[in-house]
């Protein structure tokens, strides 16, 4: 399992695949929400609340937020390793990049937990 995970998270192809799959999930969610809003112009709070109480909808939202989390993690890591490097900004780069990555991880984790809390009211 760890082997699979290591392979899954740290190779180029898996990163590439994850970026594409998560992008599709996010697009699907966006289309669904926008579509829903357009087809329900006179939306009430009750209606909206009812929709988001559906288990299927809650799972969909959670999966999407998880997709955002993965997408952001891989994408931002890529940006950080491109720009925050010793070559570009000197020896302080490694420390700075690690700090930024840690911050990024915490923010992502926070949003994930918050999402679960909202969706399931824990």
């Amino acid at each position: 399992m760890m082997d699979f995970l290591a392979r899954f998270t740290f190779t180029g192809p898996s990163n590439w695949i994850i970026q594409r799959i998560t992008a599709i999930v996010m697009a699907a969610y966006l289309f669904f929400i926008v579509g829903y809003l357009i087809t329900n112009p006179a939306l009430t709070y009750d209606q909206w609340s009812e929709l988001n109480n559906l288990l299927l909808m809650r799972v969909f939202t959670l999966v999407t937020v998880a997709a955002v989390a993965f997408h952001a993690w891989i994408g931002m890591r890529c940006v950080l390793t491109d720009y925050i490097t010793v070559r570009l900004i000197g020896p302080k780069a490694n420390g700075l990049r690690n700090t930024l990555q840690l911050g990024l991880a915490l923010i992502i984790l926070f949003y994930l937990v918050w999402t679960i809390k909202i969706l399931w009211g824990l």
Binding site: F10, T11, G12, N15, C78, T81
Partner: peptide
Amino acid sequence: NLDDPFSVFR
């Protein structure tokens, strides 16, 4: 030898 995130995917 090429399947890390940098060699090709950058």
